[in-house]
Design a protein around this nucleic acid. Sequence first.
DNA 1: TAGTGGTCTAGACCACTCC
DNA 2: GAGTGGTCTAGACCACTAA
Lengths: 247, 247
Amino acid sequence: MSPQPLAPEFDQRLPRYHRVREALSAEIAARRWKPEEAIPSEAEIAETHQVSIGTVRKAIDSLVADGVLERFQGKGTFVRRPDFQSSFFRFFRFASAGGAARVPVSRILKREETTMTVVVAEALGLKAGAPAIRFSRLRLIEDRPLVLEDIWLPHDRFKALLTIDTREFGDLLYPLYEQYCGVMVASAQETLSAEAVSAKNARLLELEAGEPVIVIERVALSADRQPLEWRQSRGPASEFRYQVEIR
Amino acid sequence: MSPQPLAPEFDQRLPRYHRVREALSAEIAARRWKPEEAIPSEAEIAETHQVSIGTVRKAIDSLVADGVLERFQGKGTFVRRPDFQSSFFRFFRFASAGGAARVPVSRILKREETTMTVVVAEALGLKAGAPAIRFSRLRLIEDRPLVLEDIWLPHDRFKALLTIDTREFGDLLYPLYEQYCGVMVASAQETLSAEAVSAKNARLLELEAGEPVIVIERVALSADRQPLEWRQSRGPASEFRYQVEIR
DNA sequence: TAGTGGTCTAGACCACTCC
DNA sequence: GAGTGGTCTAGACCACTAA
């Protein structure tokens, strides 16, 4: 791959490795280098930006630490495709027989055109009442309902989704966003809490009324941290387990 | 502070910065440099270990990333005292009037000498039936019960705690461990889940029976990652909120 | 002003991958 | 063997802190 354009005018007071980082970051967000692709070699980037290789390494180091890039000795440095499957499995454990982690089966229960509520609009940086697309989705493992999702999208950016039969959506939404709406989810901010399940949700999740459920509220972001999707997921607390290291 | 002893014989195949990191780590675990103290300057460490300053910086970088050390330009590099208060407040939000985060008041409900259950013993790397000290503790904010804790300690290492009146324990346990047992908690592994509250716990937490509670299981570790304490905390799910960034 | 960490350079050699 | 990232060096100069 040929060298990227000269770095835009980032704040000159910032350290060089920081400016190089911003430049690389911008290229990735602009999809000049796509996920799974190698970026130019360290030597080439150093040449392009007129800095030493050590400085380039420091810039790349920080992008690797943030999970944006991946390095492989002898092969190159690659744009990392975020794997949200792992997020799902980090939170819910399954007493699945084989033990292998499989993508849960998804069933779209409802699709509607509506307007943003105050809460959703605020999370997405939009005005309440703005046009929206809303999905209700159930995810199952071995025919057992595991997670019930309430998904909200800005209408403009995602209207292409209204043209597809929901029975052909498949089990994952983010690949659809990419394919039909040209939108790539790069990261997400999640908030965990818990509540007693409502009567309606209990029926869908096949729980007793009042049983505890975990609530995960997610805002999915693009590479340049624009909010794309708001989603609230609920699953039985008995299936939930999350580990953290505290320092 | 004078230079530390020559690095022990770490695996010679490991990179130098890694060996330096291990050596520094060992000094900290051995409490040769205590929390809040400055470690020797980078130049001095480079001299001691016969490596270049760049290599020392790389070793220190990784300890800083892991939260073991803190750097201050112009001042030095310091051993970080882990602040578990922040862990507590990371999980529970309080509708406290002022908004200021305060240490919750602690009330020891029970102290007993007993033997390790299978679950606790396994988490602490001990044998089931080994002698143990067990505390039951309630933590309150503004006289409202917030967290109920079940705390298990190996008897040998912590028997000094049996000599103090529990009414004089104060609101934090880890300083006591340090003062009376010469044991310092450096990190912790926590697992979150949720359940419907039991009748007994509901009474203590002033909840309705069956309301959802968050369960946090913690194994506290020393700097060299020896398990020190096992603890299970329960609090009302309504007060609970935890944020994660997914990439 | 002396001592600290923060940035940056220009090179060297090694380990690994791929052709 | 050519090209990649991984480690390591020995300097330089800057920014900040404290006496």
